[in-house]
């Protein structure tokens, strides 16, 4: 029981850390510091490769700097992890159409 609690606490801590990193990424993005935002989102993905939000935000940032291929791959990954992600779906469909 104690081990389970410990595991859960580590998991929650990691989750919080990833969310904080994504928030930092968003801050950079909103300040048009695109390279810094990309570095943060990649850091979040390194910690949690199943985080659809990190991939979505990475996609938005890459698309903003016209890296269409990179953005498409990121949205595709976000959709793979979270098929109902509406934003990722809209961006992905538009990029595929282009």
């Amino acid at each position: 029981m104690e081990i389970d609690d410990k595991k859960e606490s580590i998991q929650t801590k990691k989750q919080n850390e990833v969310e904080t990193i994504i928030e930092v990424g968003k801050f950079y993005f909103l300040n048009q510091k695109f390279d810094e935002a990309i570095a943060e989102y990649r850091k979040a993905i390194d910690l949690d490769a199943r985080n659809a939000d990190a991939y979505y935000n990475l996609g938005i940032t890459l698309e903003a700097i016209s890296d269409q291929d990179g953005a498409r791959d990121a949205f595709e990954k976000a959709l793979e992890l979270e098929p109902e992600n509406k934003g990722a779906r809209e961006h992905y469909d538009r990029l595929v159409e282009e």
């Binding site: 968003k26 993005f29 909103l30 300040n31 048009q32 979505y56 935000n57 938005i60 698309e63 903003a64 700097i65 016209s66 934003g87």
Partner: peptide
């Protein structure tokens, strides 16, 4: 220009 914004749902967008 693609300008970063936050949507009413709190998502980042441009």
């Amino acid at each position: 220009r693609k300008v970063p914004v936050v949507t009413p749902e709190g998502e980042t967008e441009f």
